[in-house]
């Protein structure tokens, strides 16, 4: 069978895939760059594209570019666009949920991402929050953005090992509701269900150019590509990272003191 999307041998790793896209779209990258999929991949001596979540408990060095790869996920791009273009008008509430297995991320990493999504989709910065956290594994948070939007985040890292992340991002406005989950459902849908035994195997492929990579790797490659295409100064990226890391710390502080905290 004629196959078009199978990756060529030179695109066998994430770095090769990024290099391939840089070449395809005539985009220049900083010399000596690396793509750090995990904290262990970070090279202190070269420019490293890395998810900001991996840096939440680390000191920044001048070569680390903390990216927010989830902003490359199409569902989040569309949700933001729906708010930005005022398809839903006068947003009042954000109702976010994310349940992950602990093998994939820590609670701090999870919150770092969800806080950023609140700000990016909600269109304001977090100004205050109240948080309750149990055993560094489960958190329930209410926060307020600078534009008056109130958000709730239900978070857990106690999903069974090997299970997929279950999340939902709902935006409630005076004109319309938008959500990345279909009405009257609780769990994420997939593109393909393969029934071979009692449990279905599922697949959701969203990127033909990066077919075969996991969703987290695809979004990191896309984020690095975007950074090369429209560079944001490293100082700005690091300042954004410090802001998000501070919000995460504040959540734990709020839980420890049982106080709403203004940032």
């Amino acid at each position: 069978m004629h196959s078009i999307l199978t990756r060529s041998p030179q695109v066998s790793s994430a770095s090769d895939a990024l290099r391939h896209l840089l070449e395809k779209y005539n985009i220049t990258a900083p010399s000596g760059w690396t793509l750090a999929l995990t904290p262990q991949d970070m090279d202190p001596h070269s420019i490293a594209f890395v998810s900001g979540t991996h840096l939440v408990q680390q000191n920044l060095t001048s070569t680390l570019l903390p990216l927010r790869p989830w902003r490359e996920e199409r569902r989040f791009i569309e949700l933001r666009s729906i708010v930005e273009k005022q398809t839903v008008e006068n947003v009042s509430l954000l109702r976010f949920r994310c349940f992950s297995p602990s093998q994939t991320e820590t609670l701090k990493e999870l919150l770092y991402r969800e806080f950023d999504l609140c700000e990016w989709i909600g269109g304001g910065t977090i100004t205050s929050l109240f948080s309750t956290i149990t055993r560094d594994s489960v958190a329930n948070i209410i926060l307020r953005l600078s534009n008056g939007v109130v958000a709730s985040i239900e978070a857990s890292i106690l999903q069974p090992t090997g299970s997929t992340r279950q999340d939902r991002h709902e935006v409630i406005a005076s004109r319309g509701v938008t959500c990345d989950r279909v009405v009257d459902t609780q769990v994420a849908q997939e593109s393909i269900y393969l029934f071979q035994s009692s449990n279905a195997t599922v697949y959701t492929d969203t990127d033909a150019e990066l077919f075969g990579f996991s969703a987290d790797v695809i979004t990191l490659i896309r984020a690095a590509l975007r950074q090369c295409q429209s560079p944001i100064p490293i100082e700005t990226l690091q300042a954004q990272h410090r802001h998000l890391a501070k919000v995460v710390d504040t959540a734990f502080q709020s839980a420890a003191t049982n106080r709403r905290i203004t940032l």
């Binding site: 729906i82 005022q86 938008t178 593109s191 393909i192």
Partner: peptide
């Protein structure tokens, strides 16, 4: 069973 154009996001706005 496959949905070649799903899942997506949903709204009831403008």
């Amino acid at each position: 069973m496959a949905d070649c154009f799903g899942p997506n996001v949903y709204h009831n706005g403008a």
